[in-house]
Design a binder for these strands. Sequence first.
DNA 1: CGCCTATTTGATCTGATTCAAACAATGTGG
DNA 2: CCACATTGTTTGAATCAGATCAAATAGGCG
Lengths: 289, 289
Amino acid sequence: VNATGLAVPGAYPLALICRRGWAAELKAPRRNMPNPLIRKLERLYSLSDEEKNGVLEIGSRVIEIGPRQDIVRDGDRPSDCKLILEGFACRYKLMPEGKRQIMSFHIGGDIVDLHSLLLERMDYCVATVTRCKVSITPHQSVLELIENHPRIGRALWKDTLIDAAIFREWMASIGRRSAYQRIAHLMCELATRMDAVRLEKGSSYDWPITQSELGDALGLSTVHVNRTLQELRADGLITLRGSTLVIHSRERLANVGEFTPEYLHLASTDSAMVLNRRTPAMAGRAPPG
Amino acid sequence: VNATGLAVPGAYPLALICRRGWAAELKAPRRNMPNPLIRKLERLYSLSDEEKNGVLEIGSRVIEIGPRQDIVRDGDRPSDCKLILEGFACRYKLMPEGKRQIMSFHIGGDIVDLHSLLLERMDYCVATVTRCKVSITPHQSVLELIENHPRIGRALWKDTLIDAAIFREWMASIGRRSAYQRIAHLMCELATRMDAVRLEKGSSYDWPITQSELGDALGLSTVHVNRTLQELRADGLITLRGSTLVIHSRERLANVGEFTPEYLHLASTDSAMVLNRRTPAMAGRAPPG
DNA sequence: CGCCTATTTGATCTGATTCAAACAATGTGG
DNA sequence: CCACATTGTTTGAATCAGATCAAATAGGCG
């Protein structure tokens, strides 16, 4: 049952929120980890100390939510924003006849319903994929924060623009790439985004996404996802067992999936930043026909 | 040839821009028409006189661009924003092997590359569909404007959020609806948006989109679009001849395409509206839940 | 009129869906 | 620790929506 009082058929159960504490985690983080919102924002714009203090003063609370639970529902009118701290989540829409389209996957550092800050009514659902730790911040606090620190507002706006860029790339995938390419592309995207969070490039990744979720994300049937995954394995591109994905050659997989990271607008690809290389000369070029 | 100096194979020719005048059109509009940017913004938030004056002082220029010409290219780093005043435009991506995915269609009042205001590098192209009148405003001016009038920044942010909502709905269409439904859905969307601009609901619409463009927008082949259009005609849902679309029953077409207008977040569907209500005290605050 | 672009038609092929059932893994409670 | 339930993966067979290829029409326009 959502805010409108109507059941959403086929939706995941709504999360029973178990409160963990008020801001405690955020204000006194363990292991010298900076506040996750600050880390997120700093990947968009570097912040002044004053701005960072502004963020720290925000009253967020942290909750934990089990796997496959709805955090927000289509039609809801949330009064706070949710930031994923740990775990996997996704945004999706349910359509008549129970069809589902997953619109994006989210990992630590992603804000999943910033949409609701300016547009009151949700037009999609957000659900966890794995158990998640989620930080919840009242709209009121966010609005005050960006009122006092316009650059933070700018950073959040930028974040939603990157969101949109990812949607566009998915549209291209779903509309114009084969099943084989779509899966390869998605794997590259998520691997790249996970690399950006952990600040190093790996080849082994946490992959809690089921084949039916993959299908719903890529506009394919579960059966066909299964067979296509087998092809990818047979071609030596990946190993996927349990919930671990190993990418044997990132370059080959990217080639197959036509993946180029520009649309993610990671600092490293945009201009100056952390991660690895990238030849500026090649950036943004349409691949030669 | 784009900003990187490289040809984009398969792209439309880059617009040869014919300058029409500096701001003239915008400052002294004919027929008592308000400034189009103001009209656009007012559909998102109502503006104070001071804010309106701020908009009026902006130095925009108006240009005309012929049909099927690129306005901005993937990889470009524009230094201004483009607002469509008249005509049809679209955003698209080109992929290897010449495949194209159209991501959105645009009509008068739409800003097509607000993306570039905060993210320097374009990750998509913008092209005209028909001859267009386009207003061009330097980033610099827009940035100054929103610095002085934060609510205008908020309105623009909101606009990009609606953009993203439309992308999401398209993803759902392409990923999970049949060809028949996709076409019906797109027709409903555009009809609804055109109604919003002209402020009345009609049944006859300008439809300059070719079948091959339709296919590229919906992830279908031209041939299949053709046959599906014939089905829609045979079922008495539409008449499409020349560049005029007549929708015989909006309700039936919406049913077929599973179209509901909420995701467009038009003022009338979202409760917090523009023309009515709004007290100065509320300025900058989120609309009441 | 002739050129170019858009639409239409026909025939054929295939990537992907659907339905159904078996199998594997993981967890749960007794 | 096992029996059982649940959820996810795999397999096979039949079918279909939509793609592809190729060629014929129909419009629009200089």
